Each structure stands twice: as structure tokens, then as C-alpha cells.
Amino acid sequence: MTPAIDLISDTSTRPSAEMLAAMSRAPVGDEQLGEDPTTQALQDRVAELLGMEAALFLPSGTMCNLIAFLVHCRSGDEIITADTAHVFGSEGAGASAFAGAQFRPIPSPDGIFSGLQLEAAIRAPRYRSPRSRVVSVEQTSNRGGGSVWPLTSLWEIATVGQGHGLAVHMDGARLPNAAVASGHAMAEHTRGFDSAWIDLSKGLGCPVGGVLAGSAAFIEEAWYWKHRLGGAMRQSGVLAAAGLYALENNLERLAEDHHNARLFGSLLAGIDGLTVFPENIETNIVFLDLTESAVDAHEVSKHLAAEGIRLGVEGSRRMRAVTHLDVSRADVERAGTVLARILRDQAAAA
């Protein structure tokens, strides 16, 4: 049963009545034959937003990343990314399992690394070494507390990567959040990148899907992998319609989620033994570190659940809250107030 206030992730969003109505009205056809007008409209729209030639609607964001690596890499290649990156720690090592590629992680607490760090990670060509093939950045950085890569940093990575013959890929699961937070269009974030994608099922509120974009030649190759991985669909316009609705109605409102995340963090400020990360909350992700407290995150979670509130538990001393369109300001105020009380009560009882 879904809690009354669910802050475990922005994937908890459910389609609104208006989105469901748009889905029910969608004109559809066979997407594999190029006959689904709604899917094509979504792909064209995302390609335009990301400044790319073409795009491909896929069932999930993980598949977007995996297909990008399958197109860019061959067995024995290496993908350079942050050690906090979702592709490195939270996608079942798909690039290794399917593409035969390994990751070369760059230590980066906030998920953002520099051109100099990238230069240092690129391997010199040797027969005995894996080949540096791809650099992947995550915008926003999930484990970095929703941190936003500055445009200059993204452009630096693109310049260095392409200067060394690497493909440059963006895991743009929360790129819409970054665009709204920074005030810069998504195409500015992806300038110089070979591939990028956005997730529809996070802050945009769709029930499923992601859209991968790149050059026309890249998307042509991506189609092969879409079929091989079982990602081909038929009348996918029913789902694509949700994406079109979200891009029209749910994009700019992401700013509300960012305001609510900052409010949540402020309600927990000053509690002994609790550290709120990041210190300056940029988007919709807030981490809670209980390392300096005697309180166990699993126990806190149980008490929250009894009050109809859910946060993510990342370990005995770490929790995560993610704001989204199904959580109002009043919900956030209640969740923060209740959590503060529970933390104080648990600390007093320890």
C-alpha cells in the first residue's frame, strides 16, 4: 500500500487524471513500422529539446544507458564515470554483462569531476590495456544529492572527451530538473555530447519510459539494440502521450519540487547528530546522514511508516528523501516536522 506521503523517490509519481485522459485519446499505430504518430511526435520533441538529430522512445532509463553503451562500446572497452554514478552502482553492471565493457570510476563525492580528472583517467593506448571509449556524466547527480553540473563543466568534459576520441554520453535521468534549476535549456546542457536521454517516469510524472537521443546514425544503431533487448513495442503511443503531456505541463513545475526539498532540509536543520546533504540543496534530492547519532535509520523508517510517511533507507545511518509532483508543500512540512520529532525521540531513548 502506497504511503500517504511517499518521499522514497520521484519514481513514485502516478499519472494524473489529465495525463490518463491524454493517454486514452492518443492516436496510435505500430511503432516498429514507424506508424505510431504519438511516439514519433514524442521522439521529435525530445530530439529538439536536447539539440540532437533523432531520438528513440524506450521502456526505461536503464535501457537508455545500456543501449548507448552498446552502440558506443565494444568488448574490452572502458567507460569513465564518477564513482557515485548510477550507471556504475545501480544498473546491475549492464555495460559489463552485455557490452563487455568495464567502468573506470573517478572519485567524486558530488558526482561532478573536472576535465583534468578525465584526462588523468584516459588510458594511454597499449595492447595490454582496456581502451578508453566513453565518458559518461549524470545530470543531475543522484548520489551527489541532486547536484547540477555547471554548463562550463559539461562543455569542458565534452571537449576533453572528444579531443581524445571518446564518445561523450549523458545520463540525463533528471536533466529536466537541472534545466529548470539552472535556467538553461536542456540543449545547452547536452551541447557537444554524442548521446543523452531524459527520464519520463521521475519528476515529469509519467508511468513509464525514457527517450534516448543522438545523431541519426546513432539512433539507427540504437534501434537494433532496442529489438535485441526486447524493448520494441507496438502501439506505444498510449505511453508516449504521457510524455508529451508531461513536457507540456509538468516541466516548469519542477521548480516547486526544488523549493519543497529546500524546505524539507530547513525543517531538519540543527538536529543533533543529523547532517543534511547537500548543504545547499539545488534540486529535489536530500540525503540525511545519521553517522554522528545513535539513531538507526531502519528504526526511524518504521516510525515514519506508522505515520504514513516513507523515505528511502540507504543503510543504517543514511536516508534519502526525494520531492515530486505527488508531494505537496503541506506534505513536506508534515514529513519534516514528524521526522524531526522522531529523530529527537529516538536520540533521547538511545
Rank of each mutant, 00 (worst) to 15 (best):
V238R: 14
F277M: 11
V87K: 11
A241E: 12
H72P: 11
A269C: 08
S182I: 09
E292A: 14
V71D: 10
L244P: 02
T11W: 12
A246T: 03
T323D: 02
T11L: 14
Q102D: 14
F103W: 13
Y245N: 00
L33V: 02
A217P: 12
F69L: 14
R310D: 07
R329N: 03
G183L: 07
A93Y: 14
M170Q: 13
R126M: 10
D6L: 05
E31I: 02
A330W: 00
R45P: 06
T39R: 00
G165Y: 09
P27D: 05
E31R: 00
V134W: 01
N284T: 13
A232T: 02
R262A: 08
S147K: 13
H303I: 14
C64Q: 07
G230K: 02
A242I: 13
G265L: 03
A222Y: 09
G76I: 06
L247Q: 10
K202G: 10
A101V: 10
V134H: 04
G336Q: 02
V135L: 01
V238A: 04
I281L: 02
W225A: 09
A173L: 07
F193K: 05
P3Y: 06
A22I: 00
R123T: 05
A347F: 08
A173Q: 03
L166C: 10
F287D: 09
G192N: 09
V160P: 03
S301G: 08
S201C: 15
G273K: 04
E53C: 13
F57D: 04
G205H: 01
A158C: 09
F57Y: 02
G336Y: 02
R329D: 01
